[in-house]
Design a protein around this nucleic acid. Structure first.
Lengths: 214, 214
DNA sequence: TCGCGGCGAACGATCGTTCGGTTGCCGGGA
DNA sequence: TCCCGGCAACCGAACGATCGTTCGCCGCGA
């Protein structure tokens, strides 16, 4: 599928120069800036629908030049998914995610998960759209399921501790919780007013309900 | 991308016979059964990653035979997206979605939306993953946005009528609401126990909160 | 005999990737 | 100071594979 043409030649987001300080050499990319460009294109068109030609054009160089900096398409995907997963799993290592009542830990994780979702938006977006077509994607899916399972067991703990009122089926609650939080990537865009209050609002809304009873 | 081999030759889900009653002719597909096969494959691998070879193999015939029944890949997508969108928009035409207090109409729509999501699962799943690469996909995205906008304005009405307690930012609530409901496609599979009570549980959970305050 | 369902082969286009070659800045020996 | 060898960045062209689609033909039941 050939999507609508991505952009004009586009002012590439170049970052550094080849060497030294006042390098007269032409601007140069590093691996992470090319990854950022690639992930943006992946998210715009979908990984499979994005060609290496698309990526190199968005970077402002030719396809063969692009290959001088990166080892391949799937390697770009792997690096991006890794970044997203590392950000998410780091949350579980925080003291507030490991100590205290289950419900408090859960609320902390939700709060931080929204923060990571927004700060690492392109990478997490890519992660949440993976389908499992390659070994790389299946590995990412497995890691993601492990993260969700941790949250699900925390929800179950909270119910078992009597911290959540009866009638909430734990596994259903956990699934809807993850779905609600993850759906933020569908509409959140950085730099809009009110962004900094989003994590707190999400925690409050999943606690009190979206459309509370009259 | 070449996904893992889909299946062995696969017992194709053939539906009818060519003609007459005791037709000795080999089984034959109609357009809708081939659409069902195609949509399942699209969802398993993603639309772009699914080749016509994959589709015909899943149907148990060759690629060229497959083309004898369908006019092309994008036409299959269009038919599938249309089916999903028709199902969703039909909800808005129901009397209970048009009469009564905003909050009641909203709850009815959520209930029915979960029902349609589950009964038309493969088609709605495909719809919710469209990225907008072709004119067909952009048309589907526009229709989907119109549906979401209807719900968003209903949420705003409920807030304006004082039916929802203060502190809920209407547009944020509407987005999280849609995200929560739509996330069901990520895990719901038909035929599991408790399926019939899901719509009611979802309505209750978005009203009372997923992890209510202690 | 007609025609529908199915088939193999091939079309041009595009895919991810590789290769050989050119450019121009830079460090270091004369 | 000058020059030169090295090398990082970049490019055009092409590779084999696979893509969606088309074509001509065949077998068989009505």
């Amino acid at each position: 599928m050939t999507a609508a043409p991505s952009e004009p030649p586009a002012p590439p987001a170049r970052t550094r120069r080849a060497r030294g300080a006042a390098g007269a050499r032409r601007p140069v990319y590093d691996a992470s800036s090319l990854l950022a460009v690639a992930v943006q294109e992946f998210n715009a068109r979908g990984y499979d629908a994005t060609s290496m030609e698309d990526l190199s054009r968005a970077a402002g160089i030719t396809k063969s030049s692009f290959y001088h900096h990166v080892s391949g398409k799937e390697e770009l995907l792997r690096a991006a998914l890794n970044r997203a997963l590392d950000g998410l799993f780091a949350i579980l290592e925080e003291p507030a995610a490991q100590e205290g009542a289950a419900l408090d830990r859960l609320r902390h994780i939700i709060f931080r998960q929204v923060e990571v979702l927004t700060s690492e938006l392109p990478y997490v977006t890519l992660l949440l759209r993976v389908r499992g077509n390659t070994e790389t994607e299946r590995w990412a899916l497995a890691r993601r399921r492990a993260f969700d399972a941790t949250i699900a067991s925390l929800v179950a703990d909270a119910v078992a501790d009597g911290e959540v009122r009866a009638g909430v089926e734990p596994s259903l609650a956990a699934r809807l919780l993850s779905g609600t939080v993850n759906s933020i990537i569908e509409w959140y865009r950085p730099g809009r007013p009110g962004s900094e209050s989003l994590p707190g609002e999400v925690v409050r809304i999943v606690s009190e309900g979206i459309i509370p009873p009259a």
